[in-house]
Design a protein around this nucleic acid. Structure first.
Lengths: 220, 220
DNA sequence: CGGTCACATGACTCCTTAGTCACATTATAT
DNA sequence: ATATAATGTGACTAAGGAGTCATGTGACCG
């Protein structure tokens, strides 16, 4: 939790700090992200940072929490929770990648948290977040199974892992790849996400849904 | 490339260094992995390490290369390259997770390399490796498409990303999860992989194949 | 025995990091 | 105007990192 001081800050300043810090954590692994670097780029003193946050971990968790909440809100906004399973899943996937393209830093911070191994300080925290995502998908899958939308013999936990893997960053990576954009460019040049049209995203999403729905096998 | 000195080393000593270094790199992100730590645990002097390798990156790349080659060889050994697509894929998946369970450190080092973002020094190297894996799957997929095993309308590049995501570490994570083993335990206690029977692995693999083949949708 | 070469060593340099603290500045309230 | 509280500051500490180097050890060869 950030200290009260940070919350009292002028909107503009607070936002600047968040921006700069996000950029740092999006483009470096936690242990390599540098507070000295952040304060320099944000134009504030090192000591000030410690008036705002207890320590590096506190700052990071604040940002991660922020990013996760924004992404979640974004997805919920673009989704009809009463739609049938595949429609819902399609909307989730579409909103997920759109969010990542519109908010490269936020998206990257969340994606990193899902994948980073070996950051001992944060292990516990990451696991909680991952478990929450898994359970979300599991719930969705079980409901769809009860309703007969998907096959009964599917292992919903395993599927949740698969979905999370695809959603996590696989898809966004694929998209950047098709456009020949490196992640490095993507994080520094925020406007690059606009290269993707809504049709691009829709097409990719529907391919994924089609795959998940029908599988790969050619049926004669 | 390691220096000649390293290759001249007594087998036993060389192996010990490799073991210790692998453990360090498997359980810490590259930037946090510590040479001082490695040499201390391997019982050699810091200076000696620099008689063996040019620098940290050199050591890491040597290990990653080793791990990747071993995994590849392991998979090739357990696979019939003339089998049909789904059989081949099943064998690859099975061998892949078996390798990860039998060689936790090696498997983890490879998996980390696939996912780590923001390690600027290694970006280029990682991308080469990832691209190779993608192309391997793409080739496989295109061949299957030509033979009519899988549908023509599938995007093989996209599918390659999906497969890589599943293979990469998703499945091994799922397996550890089902047994309630944390990655941390798994990396320190090498024998833990034996908890999984060949049947466990076979069952999970066939579930994945079934999913990829037929999709999730309930067909009446 | 002496000399040469390969390998071993750990104290050392230099750098960067997270985090601190005594002090300066500004805002608020009386 | 004065007092009190809230913010801001950057030089500083301590710890740890990668990488170096002068010196030591031992093996082999003549």
């Amino acid at each position: 939790m950030p200290k009260q001081t940070f919350l009292n800050l002028a909107e503009e300043k607070r936002q600047r700090i968040i921006e700069v810090a996000l950029e740092e954590f999006a483009s470096h692994p936690y242990s390599k992200a540098s507070l000295s670097n952040i304060v320099a780029r944000a134009g504030i003193a090192k000591g000030s940072m410690y008036q705002y946050f207890h320590d590096k971990k506190d700052l990071y968790i604040y940002l991660l929490d922020l990013a996760a909440k924004e992404k979640l809100a974004y997805i919920q906004k673009g989704v009809d929770p009463y739609a049938n399973f595949f429609t819902l899943l399609e909307q989730i996937i579409l909103a997920g990648i759109r969010f990542n393209l519109e908010n490269p830093r936020l998206g990257q911070v969340v994606a990193n948290a899902m994948e980073y191994k070996g950051e001992e300080v944060l292990q516990e925290f990451f696991e909680r977040g991952k478990e929450m995502s898994l359970q979300f998908f599991e719930g969705m899958l079980q409901q769809a199974r009860d309703r007969g939308t998907i096959r009964k013999d599917l292992d919903s936990r395993l599927l949740a892992y698969v979905l999370l893997g695809i959603l996590g960053s696989g898809l966004s990576e694929y998209l950047l790849d098709t456009m020949g954009i490196s992640r490095r460019e993507f994080l520094t040049n925020t406007a690059l996400g606009e290269k993707f049209s809504e049709e691009d995203l829709g097409r990719v999403t529907s391919k994924v849904i089609h795959l998940l729905r029908n599988g790969m096998e050619a049926k004669e």
